[in-house]
């Protein structure tokens, strides 16, 4: 049976997380269809039709989908889902908001944040902040699944030539209204997509001191992240948080600065290829996962590191 992947987008461009979800769908096996629910989202549908391995794109263009309100989008997905064996989306804030609602309406379990596909009905997913991996099997006729993007490569954005088919919208539920958005603006790469991430913790002491990390990040072309303690203290915006309940990242290089390494933080970054820790406490748990540990005062080490990179 075919697999329906819900595209994530802002009506203008397709978000890269969709590509990882497509790869997970390909692993399950079967025709991969992509649903674009949006308003004025033809460009997104066109982009989706070029993803390698996608057989068909469904475009539901309707004012009700101008913003991805789950109250409006879930009836659409439920209507379409009956023809599919699986419904997938990225385990992003958007996918996590929508898919459990869809699952409940279909009276099936939802399977969150999968990191592996064992077979069409059996998946691996982390539990307890990634300290255990559960293999779960679903007996439901439709599997509703969110996909951890760091666990699946992105599908090629080009090479495909799927047909784009229009589907009718199901209208607005009228119970939820989008009021506004306050998006964090940054010239740096997006946290979950960056090849290098520089993160700061409580040890940074202030938001102003994050400038030290930003200078380093800019030298490396990196994104900037943070621990929960740094976010709670108001040093940086909420969406910088890496961890069990923040963003999951797995870059080539993760540099943790002034972060102790609580399990909730490790849950969000321990699959990074190379981990560097800079901490003045040689007993800090972060050193247990770091490939390279530097026991030092960050206020001395970080500017030195930036300067050293300048030299080369």
């Amino acid at each position: 049976m075919a697999i329906l992947v819900i595209a994530e987008h802002d009506n203008a461009a397709l978000k890269p997380a969709t590509l990882n979800a497509v790869t997970a769908a390909a692993k399950i096996g079967g025709d991969v269809h992509v649903l674009v629910a949006g308003q004025g989202a033809q460009a997104v549908a066109d982009a989706a039709s070029k993803i390698a391995g996608v057989a068909k794109v469904l475009l539901a263009d309707d004012a009700a989908y101008a913003h991805p309100l789950p109250e409006n989008v879930s009836p659409l997905v439920v209507g379409l889902a009956k023809g599919y064996g699986h419904v997938l989306a990225a385990a992003s804030s958007e996918g996590k908001n929508l898919l459990p609602r869809v699952a409940a309406l279909l009276d099936v379990a939802a399977i969150s944040d999968i990191t592996g596909v064992v077979s069409a009905d059996t998946f691996e997913r982390p539990i307890y902040a990634g300290n255990a991996i559960a293999t779960v099997k679903s007996a439901d006729p439709i599997k509703v699944v969110t996909v951890r993007t760091t666990a699946f490569e992105a599908a090629a954005a080009t090479g495909g030539s799927a047909t784009v088919e229009s589907v009718a919208g199901t209208g607005a539920a009228g119970t939820a209204k989008f009021v506004g958005q306050e998006l964090t603006k940054s010239e740096r790469p997006e946290l979950t997509q960056a090849k290098i991430v520089v993160s700061g913790g409580r040890g940074m002491q202030s938001g102003d001191n994050f400038k030290l990390l930003e200078a380093l990040a800019d030298k490396l072309g990196a994104a900037v992240g943070a621990s929960r303690a740094a976010v709670d203290a108001g040093f940086v915006p909420n969406d910088y948080q890496v961890g069990q309940t923040g963003k999951i990242v797995a870059p080539e290089l993760y540099i943790a600065v002034g972060i102790s390494g609580a399990i909730q933080h490790l849950a969000g970054m321990k699959d990074s290829k190379v981990i560097v820790a800079i901490n003045k406490d040689e007993e800090a748990p972060i050193f247990q996962v770091a490939d390279y540990g530097l026991v030092a005062d960050l206020f001395k080490a970080v500017p030195e590191l930036t300067a050293e990179l300048d030299k080369a």
């Binding site: 255990a132 991996i133 293999t135 770091a290 390279y292």
Partner: peptide, 27 residues
């Protein structure tokens, strides 16, 4: 329950690496 847990396993362990002496060694 609708989902059956077939198995719960430990995640692959990350080996602790090395401590480097200074910034130059790190780079």
């Amino acid at each position: 329950p609708r989902l059956t847990t077939l198995k719960v396993a430990e995640p692959p362990k990350r080996k602790a690496g090395v401590k480097v002496a200074d910034v130059a060694a790190l780079v």
